[in-house]
Design a binder for these strands. Structure first.
Length: 206
DNA sequence: TGTATGCAAATAAGG
DNA sequence: CCCTTATTTGCATAC
């Protein structure tokens, strides 16, 4: 239960095979992929090379990270929609978790092949009506609302569903947004408590 | 103007 | 349906 360890994909010195799992004794389960397919492609080295080559080829195509992210939706792969510029950027710089890198690799690989193929065919006709695809939306909670939520949290960190609905209405936010906010706030609280303890143990700095 | 990044929403998966 | 824990992304905004 180590929170906040968003173990980034560390390019160097990672053993080719001893990765993937965050918890030695717990369930691995990234969905339920059959890791038997091709494990050679999980090699950090291989990923590092792919990411670099991907960027080179992308630039050669004259496409931006944002373009790639948006274009992924046109690929129409089952569970794949578009991604943000941020994510593409992080993939190229290997600042995503190792598992995340592995999950995204085949998708970006497909896009690259497709894009180069089209470029070859001078198929100059971009985006048509297109993609009824969904991108994960991120709500931006304004400062005033955030302050109110913090005030509610201070008095009651775990409001009932009823209370949450009430707060949501008062702040003009979706109930689910408020519910998730409280969940995330609880996680944050826990992280803070941990780092505070760590600091108290002298593991911190100062 | 494209690219990084910090902070933290949204999701996944087991209860 | 909601929670927790672990993770995956995206908005905003700094380079």
């Amino acid at each position: 239960s180590h929170l906040q360890h968003h173990q980034m994909y560390t390019p160097m010195y990672t053993h080719p095979s001893a990765v993937v799992n965050t918890h030695p004794g717990l369930s691995p389960h990234p969905g339920n992929m059959h890791q038997s397919v091709h494990e050679s492609e999980c090699d950090p080295r291989e990923l590092e090379m792919f990411a670099e080559r991907f960027k080179q080829r992308r630039i050669k195509l004259g496409v931006t990270q944002a373009d790639v992210g948006a274009a992924l939706a046109n690929l129409k792969i089952p569970g794949v929609g578009c991604l943000s510029q941020s994510t593409i950027c992080r993939f190229e710089s290997l600042t995503l978790s190792h598992n995340n890198m592995i999950a995204l690799k085949p998708i970006l690989h497909t896009w690259l092949e497709d894009a180069e193929k089209q470029a070859r065919e001078r198929k100059a006709e971009l985006e048509n009506g297109l993609s009824g695809d969904k991108r994960r939306k991120r709500t931006s909670i304004a400062a005033p609302e955030k302050r109110s939520l913090e005030a509610y949290f201070a008095v009651q960190p775990r409001p009932s569903g009823e209370k949450i609905a009430q707060i949501a209405e008062k702040l003009d936010l979706k109930k689910n947004v408020v519910r998730v906010w409280f969940c995330n706030q609880r996680q944050k609280q826990k992280r803070m408590k941990f780092s505070a303890i760590a600091a108290g143990m002298g593991l911190g700095h100062h």
